[in-house]
């Protein structure tokens, strides 16, 4: 554990709390892509099956349980509790385009051709692109509630902080994980446009609006 990873994990935690807070405070899941949230739930379930057979640490155990439970809770909030506030007609990104390539890439580029390793690899690839439906929705509506942008920023910062974490681990432990690093670079890259608007406008008190 190093400072970059700890801060990254805390940003990830924060993003989930912000999202739940947004839904409960506005009593609405407007502006949130159900598809992206469903993909995250799938990411956590496929990655954390190792909870069943591989003990790492209490920190690791608790965090994994939290991420799985909270992602399912968010799906519940969107699908049942605040269902009328969710508009599927603007959440139209085809997730087949993300699931298919992630699955086939995980069959080809993995560390070991075993069920659990392929599930882990699939979850890494899928996570890197799972934000697409959300960003697509943002692009379509052209604006977002400020609290939603805080959620997205925390989520982006989480993976961005994993990059210095990997550099640090390479230097101190000689550890290199090409799959995680490649996917992490892609994932962080997807946020660059968003970060630009967030840091130049939202943090200066302006509304998140994309140029027409």
């Amino acid at each position: 554990m190093n400072i970059f990873r700890l801060l990254g994990d805390l940003a990830h935690l924060a993003s989930i709390f912000v999202l739940i807070h947004k839904i409960q405070k506005t009593r609405s899941c407007r502006g949130i892509s159900f598809k992206t949230q469903a993909l995250y739930a799938l990411v956590f379930v496929t990655r954390y099956v190792d909870l069943l057979y591989h003990w790492i640490s209490l920190y690791n155990f608790v965090m994994k349980l939290f991420f799985m439970a909270s992602s399912c809770y968010i799906l519940y909030l969107m699908k049942f509790r605040y269902r009328p506030t969710h508009d599927p007609s603007i959440d139209t990104f085809k997730i087949e385009y993300l699931l298919g390539p992630s699955f086939f890439l995980s069959l080809i580029f993995n560390y070991e051709f075993s069920l659990t390793e392929i599930m882990w690899t699939f979850s890494i690839y899928l996570e890197s692109v799972a934000i697409f439906p959300q960003l697509f929705m943002l692009q379509r509506t052209g604006e977002a509630e400020t609290i939603t942008t805080h959620y997205l920023a925390a989520l982006g910062i989480y993976r961005a902080l994993y990059l210095p974490n990997w550099i640090y681990r390479y230097i101190t432990q000689d550890m290199v994980d090409p799959i995680a690093i490649t996917a992490g670079l892609v994932q962080t890259g997807l946020y660059l446009d968003f970060f630009y608007v967030y840091f130049t406008k939202v943090l200066h008190g302006q509304k998140f609006e994309l140029p027409a």
Binding site: I56, N60, Y111, E117, N165, R169, M175, A180
Partner: peptide
Amino acid sequence: EAPRESHDEL
């Protein structure tokens, strides 16, 4: 050898 150390990450 798989870099399994990374599997300790979230």
